[in-house]
Amino acid sequence: MRFKLSWLAVGVATGALALLPSTAFGWGTPGKSNGQKTETGGKRDGTSIVSRVTFSGSTGGTTKSGGGNVMPVGNWTPPACWYEPRSAQEFSKYVEDMYNDTINTPGQHSYAKAAVGMFRNEYKDGTYKNYNLDKEDEGNWWVAVVDEDRWMEPEAQACDKQPFWVENGETPPVANAVTPKVLAELAYNRVKLPTTEVTLAPANTTKVNLPTWSWLDKAKFKDVSVTASLNAGGLNIQATTTAKPIALKLEPGTSDAETYPASGECAINADGSIGEPYSKGKADETPPCGIKYLRSSGDGTYELKVTITWQISWTGSGGTGGDLPDGTFGATQDVTVQEVQAVNR
């Protein structure tokens, strides 16, 4: 994860480090932890402190069989930045180590040394005295953290307040100060969903004007959840975000097709399955969930897109909980459609 300060940016320009007032200074190393590994408080990774938020559950990456991240419906996105607490000891160690590393690095630009020196003075000998170490038991420093997978997004610049002190029992006076709900939103961004490949009958190869049945068994499609936890600065909270499949949408991959139902959206059944398996004797029936292709795919295939809508809810520490925006995840599968004069089943 990346910590940042609101008044300073260190960037590379023509080989030199430049001081850019009124912007952000990134603390961290993109591509390292993504908050998914358990880290000890104040642990340094080079000149960074990683986030203390950890994740467990269905956070694994995509597999050979498919799968991927849930995508929110609408314009909502999980936070790209937030604020976490740090003890006075942790904060002072980080700043002192950063200062010493910068000052003692051969060839370091004077702008970088001046910027780090200004920041150190603010908390050691300026507005605050010696990092409030004498108030260790009375409160914590709160610092901005940026999701290292999203640090280039404009939303990542929203947490632009430099580290600030909060007394025990007081609420941090900023948006996105970490809470069970914020943890739930962060967990949302790390939910990995299974492949959405449906079972088809006929399988893979179907015929023109022949209804193709499609379905998902309950046993193959279950609720998925991720738990986000934070234990730092005397704060010990967690939240579990759960995704539940509620609907399936079929997009045939060509305009020369009809879907069942006409909207292409198949609702989930009472037992948790979607659609209905084909069985002998149903040849003349209309499938509750399926497709009818009206034209051959020739020497190629049609890309049938299958998208699952997931209902997202969460529960957290202290009896908290609620709903988050629905999410979707889709994938494609190839379907061959052949032209025939007659079909006998």
Results as ranks from 00 to 15, higher is better:
254 T>I: 01
285 E>Y: 11
253 G>M: 00
278 Y>L: 04
282 K>V: 10
286 T>V: 15
285 E>F: 08
285 E>K: 15
265 E>C: 02
279 S>R: 14
266 C>G: 01
267 A>H: 00
284 D>H: 04
283 A>R: 04
262 A>F: 03
285 E>C: 02
263 S>Q: 11
260 Y>D: 05
272 G>R: 02
280 K>V: 15
285 E>G: 03
271 D>R: 10
284 D>C: 00
285 E>V: 05
289 C>V: 07
290 G>I: 00
290 G>D: 03
271 D>Y: 14
260 Y>M: 09
253 G>A: 00
286 T>P: 09
266 C>T: 03
267 A>N: 04
254 T>G: 02
264 G>L: 04
256 D>I: 00
275 G>Y: 01
254 T>E: 00
280 K>P: 07
284 D>L: 09
277 P>N: 08
273 S>P: 04
279 S>I: 13
270 A>N: 13
263 S>V: 08
285 E>Q: 14
291 I>T: 05
274 I>R: 11
277 P>V: 08
275 G>A: 00
269 N>I: 04
277 P>T: 04
277 P>R: 13
286 T>E: 13
261 P>E: 10
262 A>T: 14
263 S>N: 07
280 K>H: 14
270 A>E: 15
285 E>P: 04
278 Y>E: 09
253 G>I: 01
269 N>Y: 05
274 I>A: 08
258 E>I: 03
278 Y>D: 10
260 Y>A: 09
274 I>F: 12
279 S>V: 13
256 D>T: 03
277 P>E: 12
287 P>F: 07
267 A>Q: 09
277 P>Q: 13
265 E>T: 15
270 A>H: 05
255 S>N: 12
266 C>S: 04
281 G>A: 08
272 G>P: 02
281 G>P: 07
267 A>L: 06
269 N>C: 05
273 S>Y: 05
289 C>K: 10
290 G>K: 01
276 E>W: 06
271 D>I: 11
282 K>Q: 13
283 A>Q: 14
257 A>R: 06
265 E>D: 13
268 I>V: 14
